[in-house]
């Protein structure tokens, strides 16, 4: 009669058991100790044979666990540096536990629920769902809000996910980028610093390795796939993101356009409500960061808007209108 196969242990039971075992050890466990004793591995461990599959399983499990923010550490034995067989693994409790002073009031919990809801579509939805789980584990219930909100930030650009991965791993990316006003895309090699949504558009703030400076790249102007290379770069300081945002704000403050709006039009209502717009009769002074994006928006208003200045924007809008008229004539 064939030997009955070892009972199958569900993946989550194996992962859970591994976390518990590594949390419980002070000095760490060697790989052999883990594979031969921990639930889910021990059933498949062979004392005499080859455990290569099981070892690969363990490598993947470690990645999955670390991805949840669990600080799974590797310790080298003194005097045996570089020897994989004597490496020990553990999860130090101090680095695992949420610090005691990190607590959230009901009001804060409500707000964090809302912040997670922002991502309910797409790329960061798995992360925000997990963050909410951990938040709920603290036992604080959210308040019922007076006014119901359903905020949503979208990530439609295929480039977002590879760029996010590259950011996490500090790997250089390569992509073709179509700069406004140019007819063909140029190849770029970039060290990503941050993904920023500014005025509803996603852009990559990064260091252009050929231009030797930081640049902003609109995600929707990235043509074709983003390649995450295996070349790494030195991480930027955490405040680099805030610096980039301040820089965008400075550009916004600096750049203005003057337009004439048709009284009683949709353009009048909406453009007058744009942030920082100043108004004198039908003349509006608008702020912007990207001339092409503004040209796109203003062209969509058709005859409801006449651009007065700057000349380049005037031309860009006029060109769009004429091209559209021609293409549909």
């Amino acid at each position: 009669m064939p030997a009955s196969p070892a009972p199958r242990v569900p993946v989550e039971e194996r992962l859970f058991s591994l976390v518990l075992a590594l949390l419980a050890t002070e000095s760490g466990l060697t790989k052999t100790e883990i594979l031969s004793t921990v639930q889910g591995y021990r059933q498949r461990y062979s004392r005499t044979g080859d455990n290569a599959n099981l070892e690969r399983q363990f490598e993947r499990d470690k990645d999955d666990i670390r991805e949840l923010g669990i600080p799974l550490e590797t310790i080298e034995s003194p005097g045996a540096a570089g020897n994989n067989q004597t490496l020990r693994y553990r999860i130090p409790k101090g680095a695992y536990d949420l610090p005691a002073d990190v607590t959230f009031s009901a009001e804060e919990t409500t707000l964090l629920n809302l912040a997670a809801m922002v991502w309910r579509e797409g790329s960061l939805s798995a992360e925000s769902r997990r963050a909410l789980l951990k938040l709920r584990s603290l036992g604080v219930a959210a308040e019922d809000p007076v006014l119901g909100y359903a905020p949503r930030v979208r990530v439609r650009e295929a480039a977002f996910e590879p760029l996010r991965t590259a950011l996490d791993r500090h790997h250089l990316v390569e992509f073709d980028y179509l700069k406004p006003g140019e007819h063909s895309a140029r190849h770029r090699v970039v060290a990503p610093i941050a993904l920023i949504q500014h005025r509803g558009r996603w852009l990559l703030h990064g260091e252009d390795r050929n231009a030797h400076g930081t640049r902003n790249f609109l995600l929707r102007r990235i043509v074709g796939p983003v390649a995450v290379t295996s070349r790494s770069y030195a991480p930027f300081p955490p405040e680099a993101t805030a610096t980039a945002q301040r820089e965008l704000e400075r550009i916004w403050t600096e750049r203005t356009a003057e337009v004439l709006v048709e009284p009683g039009s949709d353009a009048e209502t909406r453009l007058a409500k744009r942030r920082d717009t100043s108004r004198e009769g039908d003349r509006l002074v608008l702020h912007y960061t990207d001339a092409e994006l503004l040209a796109e928006e203003l062209a969509s208003y058709g005859p409801e808007v006449l651009v007065l200045a700057p000349e380049s924007l005037r031309e860009a809008v006029r060109d769009r209108l004429e091209r559209t008229a021609l293409a549909h004539g």
């Binding site: 992360e127 925000s128 584990s137």
Partner: peptide
């Protein structure tokens, strides 16, 4: 309770 991962907190 476990800590948030960097990505979770960033989201």
């Amino acid at each position: 309770s476990p800590r948030f991962s960097a990505r979770e907190a960033a989201a």
